[in-house]
Nucleic acid binder design. Structure first.
Lengths: 137, 137
DNA sequence: AAAAATTAATTACCTAGGTAACTATATCGA
DNA sequence: TCGATATAGTTACCTAGGTAATTAATTTTT
């Protein structure tokens, strides 16, 4: 019985959080999945789509779509690798310029979401989730 | 910084769990969203789509789709209410007959997912998630 | 009682993520 | 070396969930 509640609340939480994130990103014409890619590119620099998929645990097809949208918006460029099968993805100058605004919006959103949720609880939650996730993968 | 990890792992976990659930339900031709509806109907009996939405915190359009698929599969029927706008949803006889099998498959799946995750951790996780979720809604 | 506002459900269209099948390139083995 | 196999990415199509607009029925207001 408690199992069911566990899965249910986890699912609900995840949905609520992405909804809020999408709301926060709306003024910038971005969506949560795009943000996750931009965030990774900002820290990792230029990496292949494969690596992006592995890092975000997402299958290749949705990644292709997300990247294509980012390309169309001018926030990301694809550079053919030495191995001609692979494409390196990196932020455009414009994306680098805009990034701080996006980051600020996201961080404000996250802060609001965590407002009444104590720091210690957050850390416990991360710890529990991480250990569970590690076992699943 | 820890915020980002928190949201990331939550999202990953949620996706992994629904993927596994979908896998477990595949032999029965069902998907996770359908299962969540069937599960609620099994405990609540006959309720309106509105109530289903409220219970599962899902918007009306996706609920309409999920129900229409279940109707097509013969697992659910829609009964017009006294208020002609609303439709009461309930399990068909066949669904009632099949339910135990589905429930067993799901519960086996959940058990496998939680195998190496201690009972106490599960309870902590539920407690943390629930309190956070309550604040968000 | 008639007009206005509200509500339940649907339709159309969007993002997010999954699998299967395909293409093009690279690598491995006989 | 050349044929088989593996790999990166794309395309097509599926479920899941969201918003906006629409329809039909019910309430509320006037």
């Amino acid at each position: 019985m408690t199992n069911h509640v566990l899965f249910h609340t986890l699912h609900q939480l995840s949905r609520q959080l992405t909804n809020k994130l999408n709301e926060a990103l709306k003024p910038y014409g971005l969506y949560s999945a795009q943000w996750s890619v931009l965030f990774v590119l900002n820290t990792k620099g230029s990496i292949t789509q494969k690596e992006l998929c592995e890092y975000l645990f997402v299958e290749a097809p949705p990644m292709t779509r997300t990247i294509q949208r980012l390309v169309k918006q001018g926030y990301v460029k694809q550079i053919p690798g030495q191995d001609k099968r692979e494409k390196f993805i990196q932020l455009t100058e414009e994306a680098v310029k805009e990034f701080p605004k996006w980051e600020h919006a996201v961080s404000k959103c996250n802060q609001a979401l965590l407002m009444d949720f104590p720091e210690t609880s957050q850390q416990e939650l991360v710890s529990l989730q991480s250990s569970w996730l590690k076992q699943l993968l």
